[in-house]
Structures are given as structure tokens and as C-alpha cells.
């Protein structure tokens, strides 16, 4: 169980060597969780930024810290969560004992959390507050298959869940690099309102430049409403920039304990 005296949190992000905004949401969520005083210590590490995952091996050396919750701030399971993070952090399984007394608990990525559907819906409502859902198509943008991960699968699962709620006129997956393409949004939808939510962790080059270009709106333009081809197009920031992701990170840490009672006793 998370304790403010002996539990630490390590949030793992991808980061970028070219995009200054890539790590910003992860750092913001860490700052928010730190402010709440739930954990004895909160740190971040990144694959492509500092501190590195290897640096994190030297974190949490306070003898009072008995457990470290490792939460990947990734949209889905895949190459990073299954290969890179365990390798770089030298995790040997769901629970890894360090220094004799400290257990590193490898939690599910944030994108796996059950609240993700509600987060997407909330994002859609925020960007298009006046749009009646019955007259609105909701497009969830995924990366596509360029990366060796399951982000497209995760995006598909979310769309199915939202579609099952039967609130929106249509709910569709669109991708940047494979059909159905985000650039075909006009053909894919028939409603007056179209809401587009990027299913990404951060607002990077994709959501600042690539997706706006594919939608036909100005590159780097403000999020929000755009009138195009007689339709109202609402373009949201990346789902991972939602401040509520801080709650999701905490929930994923809590979920580790409720799902893996056997490992707890092994610590």
C-alpha cells in the first residue's frame, strides 16, 4: 500500500532530443503528485532525456524508502514497456528487490487504465463545450503502425468503449500513417461537428504540425474550434496533457497492489 513515509514514485516517460514539449506533461504530473505529498519521493526518468532510466538506478537511496512504484507514462504496452524499461531499469519481473529491502513495483502504463475512456470523453467535452454529442463525430487519432507498439490497438479499444456508450453520432479511429487517415476526416464523417482528440502522451511535432496539416488547419494553430468546409472542427490537445493524468498515474500505482498480492508478500 502506498505510504507517504516509505513509498516512492518513478514516472517513466519517452522524452525527446528535438521536441521541448515532449517531457513537459510528465514533469507537470510529477510536480502535481509531489505537491500532494502522497509519496515520500517522486521522480521522473526518460528514454531520450535526462535523467535517463539508468540514472534512476541511483534514485531513492534513502533507507526509509521500501518500495518504488514505476509507472510508465505511455499510452500503451509495447516495445518500451516490455523491452526498454525493464532492461534499462534492470527489472526482473513485476517486483524487483534492490539493496536487500527495497522493492521496485512495475506498474501498468497509464494508457491501460480504465479511466482513460472517461478522460477522452472529458477532453472531447472540454474542446467542444457547446456541441451536441448526437450531432458530433468523435475522432481519436492514433499514431499508426510505424512504431513497434500497441498504441493503435489501445486507440481502437478506446473507440469501441466510447462507441458502446452510444452518445456520439459516430466514434472513429483515425491514424496519421495508415487508413482510416486523419486527412480523410471530411469523407469519414457526416455530422456538423467533428471533434478530434490525439491519443498521445504529449503535444509533440505530430499534434502541433502533422495532424493540423492533415486536418487542413494552420500548422501550430490554437486548439479549439475551426470552421472548415461548412463544418465545425474542434481540435484538442493531446490526451496526456490532461492534468487529471496525475490521478491516473497514482491510480496505476495503487492498482499494482490490488492486482498482485502475491508479490507484496514476497517483498
Amino acid at each position: 500500500m502506498i505510504s507517504r513515509s516509505c513509498s516512492a514514485l518513478l514516472i517513466v516517460g519517452h522524452g525527446s532530443t528535438v521536441n521541448p514539449d515532449s517531457s513537459a506533461p510528465t514533469l507537470a504530473h510529477a510536480a502535481e503528485i509531489r505537491r500532494r505529498g502522497i509519496f515520500a519521493d517522486v521522480a521522473c526518468c526518460f528514454w531520450k532525456e535526462e535523467p535517463s532510466l539508468r540514472d534512476a538506478l541511483f534514485f531513492f537511496r534513502d533507507p526509509g524508502i521500501r518500495e518504488v512504484y514505476v509507472v510508465p507514462n505511455f499510452i500503451s504496452e509495447g516495445y518500451f514497456t516490455r523491452t526498454v524499461i525493464p532492461r534499462e531499469l534492470e527489472l526482473t519481473g513485476a517486483g524487483t528487490t534492490r539493496h536487500g529491502v527495497q522493492v521496485w513495483k512495475y506498474c501498468d502504463p497509464v494508457g491501460n487504465h480504465e479511466s482513460m475512456t472517461e478522460r477522452l470523453l472529458q477532453r472531447a467535452r472540454e474542446v467542444a463545450p457547446g456541441a451536441a454529442e448526437a450531432e458530433t463525430s468523435l475522432l481519436i487519432v492514433g499514431h499508426g503502425t510505424e512504431l513497434n507498439d500497441n498504441s493503435a490497438v489501445a486507440a481502437k479499444e478506446q473507440v469501441e468503449k466510447i462507441r458502446a456508450l452510444d452518445r456520439y453520432a459516430a466514434v472513429l479511429n483515425v491514424y496519421m500513417e495508415e487508413p482510416p487517415l486523419v486527412s480523410d476526416w471530411l469523407k469519414l464523417t457526416g455530422t456538423k461537428n467533428v471533434v478530434v482528440v490525439p491519443f498521445f502522451i504529449s503535444d509533440g511535432l505530430h499534434s502541433y504540425e502533422d495532424i493540423p496539416a492533415l486536418l487542413g488547419i494552420e500548422s501550430g494553430s490554437d486548439r479549439g474550434r475551426h470552421e472548415l468546409h461548412g463544418r465545425s472542427l474542434f481540435y484538442s490537445t493531446a490526451i496526456g496533457t490532461d492534468p487529471k493524468f496525475a490521478d491516473v498515474i497514482i491510480e496505476q500505482a495503487k492498482a499494482f497492489d490490488s492486482r498482485k498480492p502475491v508479490l507484496q508478500s514476497a517483498s
Binding site: 514533469l27 521522480a43 521522473c44 526518468c45 532525456e49 535526462e50 535523467p51 535517463s52 540514472d55 534512476a56 541511483f58 534514485f59 537511496r61
Partner: peptide, 14 residues
């Protein structure tokens, strides 16, 4: 300092 020079303080302490 952890934001200016991420991770360096922990490595120094180690």
C-alpha cells in the same frame, strides 16, 4: 537542481 541537472545529485550522493 534536479530539474537543472536531472539525476546528477543522486549520482553524486551515490
Amino acid at each position: 537542481l534536479d530539474l537543472f541537472y536531472p539525476g546528477r545529485l543522486d549520482v553524486f550522493v551515490a
